[in-house]
Design a protein around this nucleic acid. Structure first.
Lengths: 161, 161
DNA sequence: GTCGCTGCAAAGTCTTTGCAGAGAG
DNA sequence: CTCTCTGCAAAGACTTTGCAGCGAC
């Protein structure tokens, strides 16, 4: 018999995230529901950048008993994005993808052939951005940077064919 | 009486762009049509980053006699993007916007309050990106960077109110 | 003349919304 | 209990596609 909650293992990091989430809900008079928790958890456990449809499929697969609707996924993602808990990326024809904002800041290398996304951090670029904003008297709240091109794997694949 | 073609003034830069475009069409056995020319010209003359709908409206306004269909705008933008003559950018909820790739590379400062977009160029950041791509064995085709925040004008406005 | 291009409207996608019942606080 | 949240299905927004006639070459 299941003696734990539906989640058996939680890292300290996830526990922190969850408590931030609950705090956020409380502040906005929103309710804590299993669907919302599962969406947060699934985003947390995924290394991928997920679009709403993939996220929904994943949730259906992992928690079929909840029969979570895609509308709830969209609604929750919007709510999380508004509250800066997730960030959306959109590029090319591939539509919008989401990632948890709680992770350290990083930028993205996006393969235009296979859609793979790699992450990188560059302090130098971050610093430069601060300086540019200063020059423009611009008060930064956020930024994103994407480098598009062909990833190593696809380059190899292209050579072979 | 109109003695010129439908366009009365052309910069050397535009003439070059147009001839590149014709070259591209020829190479791909595509036809040079007034609609395609007008789309290219409108993109060239616009300082804004246009989405397909805005671009279509602008064309309807400037060249109503052509009665250009939105489908043609979409088809031409896709064709231009495939051939790297235009680049599409997605800014948050604002959807996909297009700009001519022929212009010098630049990045964007976006005011989340008033929507204003400023452009900047930073050689240092460009150089860093090259280096990062090298580290990842990634073949860059393009990149985009956006800094989000509050512009000078809006900061002042906020203080006043 | 041929064959690609265009406008139109219909069909697809993706996302949002209205509603009635379920469920958190 | 109240009032939000949810799933469903319908509606909306945005983009693509099939087609018949038009037009570049």
């Amino acid at each position: 018999m299941e003696t734990h909650s539906h989640f058996t293992e939680r890292t300290v990091e996830y526990t922190k995230l969850l408590s931030d989430f609950k705090q956020l809900l409380k502040e906005n008079a929103l309710k804590f529901t299993i669907q919302r928790e599962v969406i947060l958890e699934t985003l947390y456990n995924s290394d991928e950048h997920l679009n709403p449809e993939d996220l929904h499929k994943l949730i259906q697969k992992e928690h079929p008993e909840l029969n979570t609707g895609i509308a709830t996924v969209y609604r929750t993602l919007s709510m999380l994005e508004e509250n800066n808990m997730v960030t959306s990326l959109s590029f090319g024809a591939q539509g919008k993808k989401y990632e948890l904002g709680a992770k350290d800041h990083h930028d993205h290398l996006i393969c235009t052939q296979c859609g793979a996304i790699s992450e990188f951090v560059c302090e130098e670029i971050e610093a430069r951005q601060e300086k540019i904003a200063l020059d423009f008297d611009f008060k930064i709240s956020d930024h994103s940077m994407q480098i598009y091109g062909i990833c190593k794997t696809c380059q190899t694949k292209n050579k072979d064919s």
